[in-house]
Amino acid sequence: NKFNKELQWATWEILNLPNLNEEQVKAFIDSLRDDPSQSANLLAEAKKLNDAQA
């Protein structure tokens, strides 16, 4: 389904953001699992944090 694909994509993207530490990655992945419908928003937040920590 749509959420499953978005969840998989967001998870992959977050795992590959180079500037997030392990705790941050875990927190984003946990949030994705808690509410897959928020995957686009969570991915945007993760990318923003990744850029800020570059």
Rank of each mutant, 00 (worst) to 15 (best):
S39Q: 05
L42A: 04
A27K: 11
A44D: 08
I29H: 03
K5G: 11
L20D: 00
S37P: 04
A46Y: 03
K47Y: 15
E23W: 14
D35I: 05
N50K: 01
I14M: 05
K26R: 09
W9N: 05
T11G: 02
T11L: 14
T11E: 03
N19I: 01
S39P: 04
K48L: 09
V25I: 09
L43S: 03
N21F: 10
A27W: 15
A27D: 07
R33W: 15
P36F: 11
S31Q: 12
I29P: 00
R33P: 01
K26I: 09
Q8I: 09
N4R: 03
S31G: 06
E13A: 14
K26Y: 12
L42W: 08
A27Y: 14
W9A: 12
K26F: 10
N19A: 07
D34G: 13
N16Y: 04
A27H: 09
E23Q: 10
N1G: 06
D51K: 12
L15N: 06
S39E: 03
P18H: 11
L20W: 00
K5M: 03
A27Q: 07
L42Q: 04
F28E: 00
L7M: 06
K5A: 07
A27R: 12
N16S: 10
D34T: 11
E22P: 11
T11F: 12
Q53D: 03
L49W: 05
A54W: 13
Q53H: 06
A27P: 02
K47S: 05
L15Y: 14
R33M: 14
V25H: 05
N16F: 04
T11K: 06
A54V: 08
S39V: 15
W9E: 09
D35P: 01
K5T: 10
A46G: 02
N50R: 01
N1L: 02
W12K: 03
A54Y: 11
E22I: 08
Q38D: 10
S37M: 08
I29A: 03
L7W: 08
Q53L: 10
N21E: 06
F3V: 15
T11M: 13
V25N: 02
A10M: 07
A44F: 13
I14V: 06
E6W: 15
L42K: 05
I14D: 01
Q53T: 06
L20S: 00
F28T: 01
E6F: 15
L32D: 00
N41Y: 15
N41S: 11
N4M: 08
S31T: 08
Q38E: 07
E22M: 12
D35K: 09
V25A: 11
D35G: 04
P18Q: 10
K2Q: 15
Q38L: 09
L42E: 01
L49Y: 05
P18M: 13
N4W: 15
L42P: 00
S39R: 06
L42V: 13
A40D: 05
Q8F: 07
A54E: 10
Q24F: 02
S37D: 05
D35V: 05
N41P: 06
E45H: 12
N16G: 09
N50I: 01
L32F: 03
F28M: 04
L7F: 10
N41M: 13
W9S: 05
D51N: 13
Q53A: 06
Q24A: 03
N50H: 03
D30N: 15
V25T: 09
I14R: 00
L43H: 03
S37V: 05
E22H: 11
N16T: 08
L15M: 12
A44I: 10
D30H: 14
L32I: 07
A44L: 13
R33S: 11
K2N: 15
N1Y: 01
S39K: 05
L7D: 05
